[in-house]
Structure formats: C-alpha cells, structure tokens
Amino acid sequence: MKHAIRPTGIAIAADDRRSFLRRSGLVLSGSAIALLAGRESLARDEAEGAAKTSDIDILNTALGAELEAIAAYQVGAESGLLQKPVLSLAVTFQGHHRQHADLLAKTVAKLGGKPVEPRSKYDFPVARLKNQADVLRFAAGLEQGAVSAYLGAVPVFGNRDLAKAAASILGDEAMHWAILRNALGEVPVPSAFVS
C-alpha cells in the first residue's frame, strides 16, 4: 500500500489518495483531505476556531525544535569531533530534521499560520562537548526529548491527520535515538514503551 503522507511533502495525487482510502477503509475529514491535497483555501475554511489555532501552535513548537535540532547537528558536524561513519550518520539525521521542518512549515502556512523562523543564534552547551561521545550523548538527548515531545503532541492535535504525521516523525526520531544509543555502546532500545 502506498503511504498517504509522504515524508518529503504533504500533497498526494488524487488517484493515489482515493485508492488508499478505498483500500484502507479510512474516512478523512474534509479539512484533512484538503490539507493533504494542498488545497489551502478549503483547509483554512474548514479548520476553524480554537482547534486550528492550537494545531498551529503545536506545529510551530515542533518546528522550533526541529530547527534547533538542525542547528545542533550542524554544530556537531563542524566540531571536528565526529569521525566517519558517525559523521555521515549525523548529516543524514540532520537531513531528516530538515525534511520534518519543511513539512511542518508548509503545514503551518497551509493552515493560515506563520511558520517560526530559525533563531539567529542558538545557545548550545559547546563547552561540555569535548569528544565524539559527548556529541553523540548530546544528540541522543535531543532525539529522546523529541520522541517524548511528539508523543505528547499526538493526542492533543485537533486534526487526526496531523496527529498521524506527527506519529510518523516520532518513529523517525525514535530510530535516531536508538542508533545514537547504539553508537554510544548503550542498549539501543531500553524499554518496550517510550514515554
């Protein structure tokens, strides 16, 4: 089955979408379908009120965290502390965060909100990063926090399709966290549940 939400964008072909819905038995709300199909005006009309405002706030908070993660991986990549293949891994993960940020920003805009911008300066604890393990541990902490943040966001989205998209990102962040833990020599998956 093709995915209804592709990681690099929101829009899906109408034929794909109809086929997916027919086979899966899922029924999406009008606003969700409009959003996923890129019909901004319809999405704005139908996703009204406090629920839309809250969704925009949640998305923008997630976007802020993704932008910070991109900057953090940049610091790690430029630190000179990461050796291949860990360096390549960090750059790959940074690319994932760029894709998350791009999706979140486009979605905020399509809902009628203003996506937050990257900060001009991020205040990372660089003095505490003295070797590759320090950088990996710092990145792992960000990824673990991201897993928890998305887990806490999923149930509070008014739009269930946004919750689904957030859950998709959560899965990616959890894989990052596990790989980073593995690189640190820790148990990659420490428990059966994340919290």
């Binding site: 908070t61 802020g64 965290a65 960000l142 673990q144 926090g145 991201a146 928890s148 943040a149 806490g152």
Partner: peptide
C-alpha cells in the same frame, strides 16, 4: 529527559 526537546 522527556522535556529535552524544548527545555534545558
């Protein structure tokens, strides 16, 4: 650690 995406 759950707060670590947004807080320090």
């Amino acid at each position: 650690a759950r707060c670590g995406a947004c807080h320090s």
